[in-house]
Amino acid sequence: MSRPRRPPSRPVHGILLLDKPLGLSSSQALQQVRFLLKAEKAGHTGSLDPLASGMLPLCFGEATKLSAYLLEADKRYLTTATLGQVSTTGDSEGELSEPAPIPELSRYSVERVLASFRGEIEQIPPMYSALKKDGKKLYELARQGIEVERSSRTVTISELTLVDFDEQHLKLDVSCSKGTYIRTLVEDIGQALGCGAYVSALHRVEVYPFNGLRTYSLDELRELNDQGGVAALDQCLLPMDAALPHLPSVTLHEAQVAKIQLGQKIRCEQPSVPLIKLYDEAGVFIGLGEISANITLQPKRVFVF
């Protein structure tokens, strides 16, 4: 019996903010949305573990060229720390230790510990992470029972709010810089409390610069597809330049656009900046460039539609 044929794909360019459900990897969720959109090319930014839910920016078509810039983004999470045990993976997916006594908690005692984790802190990345050592991902080594030394890294916890707590759980609201591991943060807080802790729930609320924007669940996307097909799904896409609202921009005339699209430098009397958005006279976002002190515009990313 032959397999069902994959529907023909089409060029799709833009960004969709998915509310990733529990139980799916970021790649699995991406492929489901890509199938619905019938998109030729797709990628995600800032992976979420299967046990985490929340905002996952998905890039389609030429927007995939912007993925690297979104990986630098600050993020915000709601997480639940379960106290009194530690996990081999830092979350409820791993093997849990024997229960340890939990001290009597008060808002004052918890806040005193949380204060030491605000601002710039040092973290040692967990073994269960996608970082590489000698070409192998750490989680692959961890599954073989191998633990290797990891260098600490500086991350920034810009906000750390105690939303609620009981005798065994802390609910935390965390705003942090790129490279922050919430599992490690929770483990370190548990150690500071003297009882250990692991992440039992994790939801990503925001990814800069998409703070406050609507996300779509898989069920919502399926329903939209049933009602209006890909035309309805296209309405969920953000324009590509929504990923870079903080960058300056310049409008180029037709001859300049032609040179940029060939990868050539052009003269551009603008202040020197490391990255600038490029538009044609019709307002189409055509790429990113860099302007040097000698008023030369060098293309860095050029979009082909």
Rank of each mutant, 00 (worst) to 15 (best):
D188S: 00
V110H: 04
G84T: 13
S106P: 11
Y279W: 14
A258E: 09
A52W: 07
L160M: 01
K259T: 02
S27P: 05
E104M: 05
R150I: 12
H203A: 11
D91Q: 05
L17D: 00
M127Y: 01
T64Y: 07
Q31F: 12
L252I: 06
I15P: 10
V86P: 00
D164T: 09
K178R: 12
L66K: 03
T215P: 03
R143E: 06
P248V: 01
P4I: 14
E120Y: 12
D173E: 09
R6I: 14
T64F: 02
Y77M: 10
G94K: 07
Q264D: 02
D164K: 13
G135F: 00
E269D: 13
G94H: 12
L66E: 08
S116P: 02
R267E: 06
A231V: 12
E120Q: 14
I124F: 05
T45P: 01
A100W: 07
S2E: 15
P245K: 09
Q28A: 15
F117A: 06
Y139C: 06
L244H: 00
L218P: 01
L138P: 01
G84P: 09
S92T: 07
Y216Q: 01
N225A: 15
K75Y: 06
Q270K: 14
G43E: 12
A29F: 07
G94V: 11
E220V: 03
L172Q: 09
S67N: 15
F60P: 05
C176K: 02
R3G: 04
R150Y: 03
A232E: 10
T215V: 06
Y216N: 04
P209A: 05
Y77P: 11
A255E: 15
G179T: 12
V174R: 03
I260K: 09
T156D: 12
P271V: 08
K178L: 08
L297T: 01
Y139T: 06
S152D: 03
L224R: 15
G54E: 02
M127C: 04
A282C: 06
S53G: 01
I266R: 05
V257D: 09
R5M: 12
Q31N: 13
G119R: 07
L58T: 03
Q168R: 12
G228V: 00
P245L: 04
D19H: 11
R107V: 04
R267T: 07
